[in-house]
């Protein structure tokens, strides 16, 4: 009996210690999480700011969706000048259709843009774990954007439970948030309406790559591409699927691009393909690397695309 009392007492003692530790941890998590949230939302420059602005503030008539080949190649200004529309580039480096579709949900919840350009690239529909991982850039928006949650939850079966922690949405963003909150950074904007310019110049002969292999496609991505098109059409948004120039020649036909073209044809949406445009094949000086135009190249490309869109919109 005495032994039982002793163990009960020590059990209560240990339980109390455990409860105190959890309380301490919960409080610390809450405080640090609130501080990070405050400074995340106070950013007025940088990539995280551009992502939040795209989801919560832009009201531009023309939006550009895509990954790095959107963010770093589409300058909104030529489109604004030619089409007489306001424009914003909501692309984000390293992202995939998951991100683009989540961003579309967020935009459509607030307003209906007039024109959308969706950038399409090689291997965009490939099954890759990195595409799910890179949804991490949307984690800080999870709490305030229920429309995005279904897509962010694709990251893992436990994703929604991870948000029990207030810090988790800002994981790995500490230095980015700190730097973006510095005075000097706030004054010096990196982007032009979401477009992040590249400045290097390539100086090498064009190479040929083999794209004959039929890699596995991610059916979720393909379905999202279809939904993206359907939702734009149902709201009478003029949608253009565009593949920008490459400084490479390819043997065969990229599987993703072929499927995207097929879906575009099926849904009767224009697909404008610059990937095999010989004008760019002879001009390495227009590229930052083999898959990204530099600012000079981007200006030429955007002016050309804008005039094509103008013709199409006037029809």
């Amino acid at each position: 009996m005495q032994h039982n009392n002793k163990s009960n007492k020590s059990f209560r003692y240990y339980l109390l210690q455990a409860v105190l530790f959890i309380a301490l941890l919960w409080a610390a998590d809450l405080i640090v999480g609130k501080i990070l949230r405050h400074f995340y939302r106070r950013q007025s420059s940088g990539w995280e700011y551009a992502t939040r602005y795209s989801a919560e503030e832009t009201k531009a008539d023309l939006l550009i969706f895509g990954a790095s080949r959107a963010q770093q190649q589409y300058i909104p200004t030529p489109f604004e000048d030619t089409l007489q529309l306001t424009g914003y580039n909501v692309g984000r480096d390293g992202t995939s259709f998951f991100y683009h579709y989540a961003m579309l949900q967020s935009v459509l919840k607030r307003y209906t843009p007039k024109v959308i350009i969706l950038d399409c690239e090689y291997a965009a529909l490939k099954n890759a774990a990195a595409s799910y991982d890179r949804l991490s850039v949307l984690l800080p928006l999870y709490e305030d954007h229920p429309e995005m949650q279904r897509i962010i939850n694709l990251r893992s079966p436990f994703e929604k439970y991870k948000f029990t922690s207030s810090i988790y949405p800002y994981n790995s963003m500490l230095f980015k948030i700190a730097v973006a909150n510095l005075k000097s950074n706030k004054e010096e904007k990196e982007d032009i309406n979401g477009y992040m310019p590249l400045h290097k110049s390539l100086n090498e002969p064009i190479k040929t790559f083999d794209y004959t292999e039929k890699y596995e496609l991610d059916s979720v991505k393909v379905n999202m591409l279809r939904s993206f098109i359907d939702e734009c059409k149902s709201r009478n948004i003029k949608l253009y699927l565009v593949c920008t120039p490459y400084y490479m020649k390819i043997k065969g036909n990229d599987h993703s691009l072929a499927v995207t073209q097929q879906v575009a044809a099926e849904k009767n949406v224009p697909f404008i393909d610059y990937s095999a445009d010989s004008f760019y094949f002879n001009r390495p000086q227009l590229f930052d690397d083999t898959v990204h135009l530099n600012m000079t190249g981007a200006k030429i490309f955007c002016a050309d695309l804008a005039s094509k869109l103008k013709k199409d919109l006037q029809r």
Binding site: L20, F21, L24, L25, A28, D29, V32, L36, D133, S136, K162, S165, I167, Y168, Y170, N171, S172, L174
Partner: peptide, 18 residues
């Protein structure tokens, strides 16, 4: 316990979860 709490906070702030 503050130290271990801090360790968990650092893991949450700076850990690579992928």
């Amino acid at each position: 316990n503050g130290y271990y709490c801090l360790l968990i906070i650092i893991i949450l702030v700076t850990g690579v979860f992928d």
